[in-house]
């Protein structure tokens, strides 16, 4: 399979690889996918409690190059957004940005799910 330049770029130099402290209440963690399916994404966000802005994001992904690129891109995109804005990121935008072929669309779906799972986790920890 031939990969798009952007996929190769994110794969070779992934942005924001790593982990945040998941016990910290300003951190939301999303873990989606399953090892049996060949893809697992962990995406974490750090939220400013005052402004509700995502100030940092990290990911780790077990999956194909497109899955790695999708999650890398997702961390880039959520940074600086409010959690409500981040919640509205669509997988189709990731598909477009990375020029993913049809068989790789589910990798972008997983990235969207990971963002939503991280935000949901953050919200559940910070119910007023």
């Amino acid at each position: 399979m031939a990969y798009s330049e952007k996929v190769i770029d994110h794969y070779s130099e992934p942005r924001n690889v790593g982990s945040l402290d998941k016990s910290d209440n300003s951190v939301g963690t999303g873990l989606v996918g399953a090892p049996e399916c060949g893809d697992v994404m962990k995406l974490q966000i750090q939220v400013d409690p005052e402004t509700k802005e995502i100030v940092d994001a990290k990911f780790k992904t077990f999956g194909c190059g497109s899955a790695i690129a999708s999650s890398s891109l997702a961390t880039e995109w959520v940074k600086g957004k409010s959690i409500d804005e981040a919640m509205s990121i669509q997988n189709t935008e990731i598909v477009e940005e990375l020029s993913l072929p049809p068989v790789k669309i589910h990798c972008s779906v997983l990235a969207e799910d990971a963002i939503k799972a991280a935000i949901t986790d953050y919200k559940s920890r910070n119910q007023d």
Binding site: S19, L31, A34, P35, K60, T61, F62, A117
Partner: peptide, 24 residues
């Protein structure tokens, strides 16, 4: 593996078979 959430979990001592995965 630096990028793998599974490797990280295993190294932390998590038994992956006990995790509730969200299959899609």
């Amino acid at each position: 593996r630096e990028m793998s959430p599974l490797y990280e979990m295993v190294k932390e001592g998590v038994d992956l078979s006990t995790v509730e995965w969200s299959s899609h």
